[in-house]
Structure formats: structure tokens, C-alpha cells
Design a binder for these strands. Structure first.
Lengths: 182, 182
DNA sequence: TAAAAAAATTATCCTAGGATAAGAAATGAG
DNA sequence: CTCATTTCTTATCCTAGGATAATTTTTTTA
């Protein structure tokens, strides 16, 4: 497969939606709350995305060394404020891709665009799941599950819900009985 | 946005790569080791994907009620044996989409296809990450990290690696010093 | 509708990894 | 080169959640 570099050089349209940039190390290039439609392709150096929870604890979401992409997918799909910081860990050269412009560029295949949207949704869901697994206690994960899938609690055996949350069914039982008392 | 249903009815090409099926509850429709290019869109009922680790412990990866998609993405990108079971939890009606045929159908936009591949890779990466977070101990996660990103250990502060693995930097220190002794 | 199988609960005991704290080592800035 | 800041390590103590096992409840099947 051709590198992004080569592709950009070759493709007339692509060159229009793409910007090259050199960024010094320890620069925060994106913050939670920003509404972003940008993705960053790393030509040289090292970027990192991370988030900070209410208690101020920091969680690294992704490292992006050479030839990786990094972005806050959730935000770029839904045009909602992002949740991630993105920063350079080393002096870096990146290609900035404006996803909006990119997507507008080719609306020729309807079904493919729908497939793309589905996939983006999937990435966003998994992104949230990883964040949950890293930062939340079993109780918080359970509560979040109930909010997100209120119907499923009645349709799915508890032990499978436990196995989705990454806890044992015994622990899930503890949590539920404790919650009933309050 | 139109439902998949409507789209299929409207689109001549789409109808060729798509099969409707009714499946009884508790049927396993896919197993680890299968080489799969299929995705399942749930019209009615409830599917679940899960995996089983070496110790026989079961982890639910995803629930798919009405209007969800479910598939083992990793396998369908790389044409490698899959890692997930997929089963019906209720009597279900699904639309089976052959991803290979689907993708061959529209190779018109090169750059879009590349974008698609990138995204699929991203989903696969996140899928593995979720599986790691749910099923592995801190030590295993650390070892896996080193194997996957051998260079990064030297380029990234330890505390950021800890925050990527979902552990504290003190615990990472414990792990590392224990490993040096062996 | 009875018997068997599977799922859920509860209690006890245990361990991986968190929190806290304090010192050592490394990095950075003037 | 030196002082200050950040990172890393080590030790102690503690807690969320796992493992095990026994009992109850629900579901399945004959």
C-alpha cells in the first residue's frame, strides 16, 4: 500500500484538504471542549492523546509515532466538543487532515459513505468503552451500562452483563444488592 | 438517515451481497478460527459476540439489539482466523452482509477506500485494546505493550505508559523491578 | 408439572494493585 | 555548573473486587 505522503503528491484533490506542519515538542494542539474536524497523520516525531477525569487523573488514550493517525473521532463524527487532549511528546512533523473537507470531497458512493459512518460510530463506541474500562469502578461501569442500554438488563442474563463489564457475576450481584438497599 | 432496510430495497447492487435470515435463539453462528468476511445487521432479536481466554473465562465483547451491527472486524480486514464467537440470545432476524463482496462493489474512490481501511484498522486496534483491558493482568498488559511498541519504551516517560496501561506509575515500577530480578 | 440444569445470590477469605509518603535519579533552565 | 523541577523507585498500608463454595431461584426440558 502507498504511504499517505505519496498519495497526497499524486492526488490533486487531496492536496487541497491537507496541511503540513512542524510542531515543537510539548505543544498541546487540541483540548477537550474544542470542536474538531481534524485528524493528524504523524510523519515524524511522536504525538499522544489523553484525557483527564474529574479527580484530575490522567489517562493516555493513544500514542502515535511515525505513520500513525491520531484524532478525537467522537468529536469529529458528531460535531460535539471533544474529550481528548492531543499533544506532541517530541518535535514532530504532521499532516493535518480536515475530515469535513475530506468527506465532502467524495459523496459519489452513497452506500460507502453510510458504511463509513457506521464504522466511525463503531470507533467512537469503542473509544468510550476503553475510557470506561480504564477510568471507572465496577459500580460506575454498571450504572453507565444501565443508562446506555436500559432495555438490555431485562433481556440479557446477569452473568453476561458481568462479563461485558469485565467483572464476575458475584461482584455484579454484590453491587446490585447494595444498590437496592439505598 | 435511511435504515439499512430501505437502502437495500432501493439499491440494485446492494441486494446482491445481502442475505436475510431468521435464526433461532442460542445458535452460535460464528466461532474463533473461522475466516469470516461477514457482518450481521440485526433487524429483530439480540446477538452477542464474546471470546474465551485460555483459562476458559468468558468475556462479552458486544451486545447487538435491533438496528446494531455485529462482526469480528479484525478477521474481516486481515482475512485471518477470527477470535470471537457470535451467537443469538433471542430468536432473531438478521441481514448478513458479505464484506468482501461489498467492498469489491465499489472500488471507484481510491482515497476513500484507503480511509476505510485505516478506520477498519483503528477498530481492530481498539477491539484488541478492549480485550486486553478486560482479560489481562497489569503484567501481561505491560509485556504486550513492549512487544507491540518496542521503541516507545525509550521515547515515552514511564508514567505515561502506566496511564496507557490503566495502572499507576508505582505499580509499573513494581512490575519492572520484579522483572529485572528474573 | 416434576426433575434437571442453569442462573443468581450470599458469605468468607484472599490478592492484585491503589494511595500515600519519602527519597533517589534524571532532566531542564538560568 | 547549580538549583529546581519533574520523573522514578521503594516501602507500608489498605481496599475493590476475585476465587471458592454453598444455597436459593429461575428456566428448561422431558
Amino acid at each position: 500500500m502507498k504511504s499517505l505522503e505519496e498519495l497526497i503528491t499524486l492526488n490533486e484533490n487531496l492536496r487541497k484538504v491537507v496541511i503540513n506542519k512542524v510542531i515543537a515538542k510539548k505543544t498541546i494542539i487540541q483540548r477537550p471542549g474544542d470542536i474538531i474536524t481534524k485528524g493528524y497523520y504523524v510523519k515524524k516525531g511522536l504525538l499522544r492523546s489523553y484525557f483527564i477525569d474529574e479527580k484530575g487523573k490522567e489517562y493516555t488514550f493513544l500514542f502515535a509515532p511515525e505513520d500513525w493517525m491520531i484524532s478525537d473521532i467522537e468529536s469529529s463524527i458528531y460535531n460535539t466538543p471533544g474529550t481528548l487532549f492531543i499533544e506532541t511528546l517530541e518535535d514532530s512533523e504532521v499532516v493535518i487532515i480536515d475530515r469535513k473537507a475530506f468527506q465532502e470531497m467524495q459523496s459519489n458512493s452513497k452506500s460507502l459513505n453510510i458504511e463509513l459512518t457506521k464504522l466511525l460510530n463503531r470507533v467512537a463506541t469503542l473509544q468510550k468503552r476503553v475510557i470506561m474500562l480504564m477510568s471507572s469502578s465496577a459500580i460506575d461501569r454498571y450504572n453507565h451500562f444501565i443508562e446506555t442500554y436500559p432495555q438490555l438488563i431485562h433481556r440479557v442474563p446477569k452473568k453476561m452483563i458481568a462479563s461485558y463489564l469485565g467483572i464476575t457475576q458475584e461482584t455484579l450481584s454484590k453491587i446490585r444488592s447494595k444498590q437496592l438497599k439505598n
